[in-house]
Amino acid sequence: RPMNAFMVWARIHRPALAKANPAANNAEISVQLGLEWNKLSEEQKKPYYDEAQKIKE
């Protein structure tokens, strides 16, 4: 299954978030990633939607 825009973004940002929160488990990191993603504007998300579309094609 191809990655969606959030997954493209999260793949880039997960390592830094995990390093900054070494005690957090994957579920907690995923929740935090979701919160951070939701704070982004549509303009900030656009490159990730574009990349996800390329992956689908």
Rank of each mutant, 00 (worst) to 15 (best):
K46S: 05
K46E: 05
Q53V: 10
Y48E: 00
L35V: 13
E43L: 10
A16N: 08
H13F: 12
A5V: 03
W9Y: 06
V31T: 11
A16E: 10
H13M: 14
I29Q: 02
M7Q: 05
L40Y: 02
L40Q: 02
V8Y: 08
A23G: 14
K19N: 05
E51T: 09
A20C: 04
I12C: 04
H13S: 06
Q44G: 05
N4R: 04
N4F: 08
E36A: 14
P22L: 03
S41C: 03
G34F: 15
G34M: 15
N4K: 06
V8D: 02
V8P: 00
A5N: 01
A52P: 02
K39T: 07
I55M: 12
K56L: 15
E57S: 08
K45Q: 06
A18G: 06
K39P: 01
A24F: 14
A16M: 15
A27V: 09
M7F: 12
N26H: 15
L40C: 02
N4A: 05
Q53N: 11
N25F: 03
P47K: 09
P15D: 09
K19V: 08
F6Q: 02
S41H: 03
E42R: 13
E51S: 06
K19A: 14
L33V: 01
A23S: 13
Q53T: 08
F6W: 02
I55T: 06
P22F: 02
V31M: 13
K56Q: 15
N26P: 14
A16C: 11
F6L: 01
A23H: 14
A27N: 10
Q53H: 09
M7Y: 12
A5I: 02
P47Q: 05
E57W: 04
P2H: 13
I29L: 12
Y49S: 05
A16I: 15
H13A: 03
K56A: 15
R14T: 04
S41W: 01
A18E: 15
F6H: 01
G34E: 15
K54V: 09
Q44V: 07
M7T: 10
N38V: 04
I29C: 02
N25I: 04
R14H: 05
H13N: 10
K46C: 04
L35D: 06
A10N: 04
S41G: 06
E28K: 04
I12M: 09
I55S: 04
A10I: 06
Q53M: 11
E42V: 13
Q32F: 13
K56Y: 14
Y49T: 05
W9D: 00
S30P: 01
P2T: 09
A18T: 13
Q53L: 11
A20T: 07
E51G: 03
Q32M: 15
A52G: 03
W9R: 00
L40T: 01
K46V: 06
Y49K: 07
N38F: 10
A24T: 04
L33Y: 00
L33K: 02
E51P: 02
F6N: 00
D50C: 05
E36N: 09
M7D: 15
N38S: 14
W37F: 03
A27L: 13
Q32Y: 10
E36G: 04
M7S: 09
L33G: 00
A23N: 14
A27G: 09
R14G: 13
E28L: 06
P2Y: 13
Q44N: 05
R1F: 12
L17W: 08
Y49V: 08
R1W: 12
W37Y: 02
W37V: 00
A24P: 02
A10C: 10
